[in-house]
Amino acid sequence: MTFTPVLTTERLTLRPWQVEDAPAALDVYGHTEVTRWLSPEMDQVPDQAAMRLLLQQWTAESVRLPAPAGRWAIQRDSDGLVIGGAVLLPLPPGEEDLEIGWQLRPDAWGNGYAAETTHALASWAFSQDAHEVFAVVRPGNTRAAATVRNNGMHWVGETTKYFGIELQVFRLRMADLDSAAPASLQPPARD
């Protein structure tokens, strides 16, 4: 049995999902602006009961996943609000590539939270002997493509390998991580 560790950044805490997070999770996964970009595309979650069921499934799944894989709630430290979710999951069909991903409620977009989340997840993965992580982005999702590039991820190409749909693939290796840290995560410059 594995566990999902708590990860922290300057402004965020990434922690395991709890069923009690259903109202906040619905503020993320209840929006088609979020779910339409997921791979594979996820239907908009219709209500809190469905969200609670999905959180129960994710929690059970996370226990069975080998480290560093898992699912996290993204909690903003300034107000304790859950503003999104994050994943490190094996990609099908062979489950040999590790996908890094995040989903934020629309009113949290544009604040650098995705970059902080990506950096924290990648750091965790590399500390657990992962050699690389991948982001798969639907064509047209310019916001996600910009975020992964801002984290030092390199475009690999396009493929239908993972979910049978056309996806852009980006890769991050450990050597690329530190220089790509979001400004809020970089150490102060020395004189």
Results as ranks from 00 to 15, higher is better:
V6E: 15
T9C: 07
T9L: 09
E10D: 08
E10P: 09
R11T: 06
R11P: 09
L12T: 02
P16V: 04
P16K: 06
W17M: 04
P23I: 11
P23Q: 08
A24N: 06
A25G: 14
V28I: 09
V28E: 13
V28Y: 13
G30H: 08
H31E: 15
T32V: 15
T32E: 13
V34N: 10
W37T: 06
W37R: 09
L38W: 14
P40R: 13
M42S: 14
V45Q: 05
P46I: 11
D47W: 12
D47T: 13
A50E: 15
A50V: 13
L53P: 05
L53K: 02
L55I: 08
Q56K: 06
Q57F: 11
Q57D: 10
T59K: 15
E61R: 06
E61A: 09
E61W: 12
S62K: 05
V63Y: 10
V63T: 13
R64N: 14
R64Y: 07
A67T: 14
P68H: 13
A69R: 11
G70N: 12
G70V: 03
W72A: 05
W72V: 03
A73G: 03
I74H: 07
Q75K: 06
D77G: 11
D77Q: 12
D79M: 00
D79H: 01
G80K: 07
L81Q: 11
V82E: 10
V82P: 00
I83M: 05
A86L: 13
V87F: 02
V87T: 04
L88I: 11
L89T: 00
P90M: 13
P92L: 03
P93L: 04
P93V: 04
E95D: 15
E96S: 12
L98S: 07
L98D: 09
I100H: 02
G101T: 07
G101L: 03
W102K: 01
W102M: 02
Q103T: 03
L104K: 09
L104C: 00
P106R: 08
A108C: 08
N111S: 10
Y113M: 08
A114Q: 07
A114F: 01
E116K: 01
T117G: 01
H119A: 15
A120W: 01
A120E: 01
L121N: 05
S123I: 03
A130N: 11
E132F: 03
E132L: 09
F134K: 14
F134P: 10
A135S: 06
V137T: 10
V137N: 09
P139D: 02
P139R: 07
T142S: 13
R143C: 02
A144H: 03
T147R: 02
T147N: 11
V148W: 05
V148P: 00
R149A: 12
N151G: 12
N151T: 12
G152S: 00
M153S: 15
M153G: 04
H154Q: 14
V156H: 05
G157P: 00
G157H: 11
T159L: 05
T160R: 07
T160Y: 01
F163C: 15
I165W: 03
E166L: 07
F170G: 08
A175D: 08
P182F: 00
P182T: 05
L185Q: 14
Q186N: 12
P187F: 02
R190E: 01
D191P: 14
